[in-house]
Simulated assay, not measured.
Amino acid sequence: MSHILVVDDEPQMLRVLKINLHARHYSVLTAATGAEALDLAGQEFPEAVLLDLGLPDLDGMDIIRGLRAWSTVPIIVISGRDSPTEKIKALDAGADDYLTKPFVVEELMARLRAVLRRPPGEVAPTRAVIGGHEVDVAAATVTGPDGPVRLTPTEWKILAMLVASPGRLVPGREILREVWGPEQEEHSNYLRVYLATLRRKLEPDPARPRYLITEPRIGYRYQP
């Protein structure tokens, strides 16, 4: 049974999340302040944290940084702050995912399952499946139903970053920084072009991607 720490100062939200998590057989810890959240995380070592940013004592960004100073626990932000700037700040601070309130509970649970699939400290996977294609990152090969699929060096770099963190939202600026360099972090059009090409090569239905997912204006994820 996974222990989930839910951090929110709204009693109704805590209640709703606690009921839904218990119904799915998770053990739940709750905190209404940032200080309480940090104390519980240090004492109970949860498997994941669901974190609201608007707390009465500490800003959620500070909690993310505080946790990241000593822990790799997956953090999913659930917040009413819906601007892309806030989302990027949270992801850059160390959050694994970001969901805007109001949200569909089933979507939150799917994202929680995704971040729990890879235990903290596990070596990044070197193989992945995208539709009928098998990706071997270590060997730099993609094999599809009709044989090998050729990817350019840039496509490989992008794909390797995504499949290394299954289910995790990778900020677009992080990909741009790693692939093209820090001076290119604002050129999101590069990524749109390359992701479209990767989908044409790998997705069963490129117009409705199932594996290489875009979070508009924020980033991308490989969804197994």
Rank of each mutant, 00 (worst) to 15 (best):
A23V: 08
L51V: 00
V16M: 13
L176C: 01
D52Q: 05
G80I: 00
T30K: 05
L14V: 11
H133N: 12
G147P: 09
P46K: 03
M109P: 04
A48K: 03
V135A: 02
Y194C: 06
A23M: 09
M61H: 03
G34W: 00
D8F: 01
D59R: 00
R173S: 04
T126D: 15
Q223W: 10
L55I: 00
S165A: 14
I218Q: 02
E183R: 10
Y98Q: 03
I78V: 11
L112M: 03
A160L: 13
P216Y: 09
V6Y: 06
P84N: 03
H25G: 09
Y190V: 08
G147F: 03
G34Y: 00
S71A: 07
Y26D: 08
I19W: 04
V142H: 00
G42H: 09
M161Q: 08
A95F: 01
Y222P: 04
G167Q: 03
V129D: 09
H25V: 11
T72C: 10
S2T: 06
A140H: 12
V137E: 06
R208D: 10
H187W: 14
G172C: 04
R217A: 07
E178A: 05
D8I: 00
I130A: 07
P145I: 14
H3V: 12
V193Q: 11
R127Y: 13
V7E: 02
L159P: 04
A35W: 00
A124I: 14
P120N: 12
V6A: 07
G219C: 02
P11K: 08
E106T: 11
Y222V: 14
Y190K: 10
T126P: 10
E183N: 11
D97E: 04
R150I: 15
T126C: 09
P206S: 03
L169G: 01
L67D: 01
L212W: 01
V73S: 06
F103G: 09
H25L: 14
F45N: 15
E134T: 14
E44L: 14
Y26T: 08
Y190I: 11
R68Y: 05
G66V: 00
P119V: 04
G219S: 09
V77F: 03
E155H: 12
G42R: 06
L21V: 12
F103R: 09
P120Y: 13
A69M: 07
E183L: 10
A95P: 01
V73P: 02
K201T: 04
D97H: 08
L191S: 08
R68C: 05
S27H: 08
L159A: 15
Y26C: 03
H22W: 15
A31N: 07
I88D: 08
Y220G: 02
L99E: 10
L212H: 01
T154R: 02
L159C: 13
L202G: 04
W70T: 13
L159N: 13
I78Y: 13
K157M: 10
P216S: 06
R113Y: 11
V123G: 15
A164R: 14
I78R: 10
T85Q: 10
Y26H: 10
